[in-house]
């Protein structure tokens, strides 16, 4: 299958990336050549194959449901691009 410009704009919307209109053509070309390459997989019959879900022959450990750290609000907020003492700040979302 091939990806058209509209589809790519839709996927970009899903990924929350604004795409420059001027770049849509070259992006469409690149993505189509990548998908053509990827679609070699269709040569293989995988009907009876179980998908790989883990490469480790062990199941994931569980840990005790306990707080192992905390009281580090300042550290967490330190890298925030815009802060207001105790919170992360985003553009207004409620009118």
């Amino acid at each position: 299958m091939s990806l058209d410009k509209e589809k790519i704009k839709h996927v970009a919307k899903l990924a929350r990336i604004s795409v420059d209109e001027a770049k849509v053509d070259s992006l469409t070309k690149d993505l189509n050549s990548i998908f053509k390459f990827i679609e070699q997989l269709n040569e293989l019959n995988t009907e009876k194959v179980e998908p790989l879900t883990s490469i480790l022959n062990q199941s994931l450990r569980s840990r005790k449901d306990e707080i192992s750290d905390g009281k580090i609000r300042e550290k967490i907020l330190k890298n925030s691009p815009k802060e207001n003492e105790e919170f992360f700040v985003v553009p207004k979302v409620v009118e």
Binding site: A12, I17, F35, L41, L44
Partner: peptide, 28 residues
């Protein structure tokens, strides 16, 4: 580019054709 590829192959209606297929081939 890679985020867009990834978003597409995981998106509704395409997951089986791409991601699930790839996980099967990965098994092989």
């Amino acid at each position: 580019r890679r985020i867009l590829i990834g978003t597409y192959v995981l998106s509704s209606g395409y997951y089986d054709a791409y991601y699930l297929k790839a996980q099967k081939v990965r098994q092989l």
